[in-house]
């Protein structure tokens, strides 16, 4: 496959079949391993409270619900950005990228607030193995979202400056893969950590 030919148009560039996109899929698979190791760790020590608080004592489901909604809606808005990309509407892409960014930032903001609250109430990551695993698992996801936000900001700049080119479209496609991937991971976090924690 010729490198020059890659991304002859916005449409071919954002097909999952180009070599770069395939490579990005493989990277995402390695990230799946990272998260599955963290889930394994969490499940193993989720009842090791060390005399500290338990899940149902500290989880605020209302905030977690808001976080979930923010992230799910951000996936929809990113989808709309991609539709605008395929329609080659630059302003539409910019608008929906910006909205996606706001939803994502809301998610990270809520998570940071939750973490600060917990630390403030003496339930920091050094309290127990359960809380270590909780902060690490949820925080790793949050860190991914934060890098996703940086990436959205960079792509916003690229679209604004360079317009819609095959290369930019190809990058946006990979960003969308990343963003939806984080959504899926969050669904598992939500179920395994928060829901299961409150039910216990």
């Amino acid at each position: 496959m010729s490198h020059a030919a890659e991304g002859a148009s916005v449409h071919t560039a954002s097909s999952p079949n180009t070599m770069v996109n395939f490579g990005f899929w493989v990277y995402l698979m390695s990230d799946v391993i990272i998260f599955s190791m963290l889930f394994t760790m969490f499940v193993t020590v989720q009842s090791h409270y060390n005399g500290g608080p338990q899940g149902h004592q500290i989880f605020e489901l209302r905030d977690v619900f808001l976080e979930t909604m923010a992230l799910l809606f951000s996936s929809i808005t990113f989808g709309l950005a991609m539709l605008n990309l395929h329609a080659e509407k630059k302003n539409g892409v910019l608008l929906w990228l910006a909205i996606t960014f706001l939803f994502g930032a809301t998610f990270v903001g809520l998570e940071v607030r939750e973490f600060l609250n917990l630390v403030h109430h003496g339930a920091g990551p050094d309290t127990s193995a359960f809380l270590s695993a909780f902060f690490t698992l949820v925080g790793t996801h949050g860190t991914h979202v934060t890098f996703g936000l940086i990436w959205i900001a960079v792509m916003f700049g690229q679209v604004a400056v360079k317009g819609i080119s095959p290369k930019v479209g190809s990058r946006l496609f990979r960003l969308s893969l990343f963003w939806h991937f984080l959504d899926i991971v969050w669904i598992v976090v939500f179920s395994t950590v928060y829901l299961a924690g409150v039910v216990q």
């Binding site: 390695s30 990230d31 391993i33 990272i34 190791m37 963290l38 760790m41 193993t44 020590v45 090791h48 409270y49 060390n50 990551p125 050094d126 309290t127 127990s128 193995a129 359960f130 270590s132 695993a133 902060f135 690490t136």
Partner: peptide
């Protein structure tokens, strides 16, 4: 990635006082 994770968790134990692999605090 498994090595990345196990090293990161040991790092958190050492740098942030977490309890993944410590003898106290419920570590395993």
């Amino acid at each position: 990635p498994a090595l990345t994770v196990v090293l990161a968790l040991l790092t958190f134990d050492r740098y942030l006082g977490m309890h993944f692999f410590t003898s106290d605090g419920g570590g395993n």
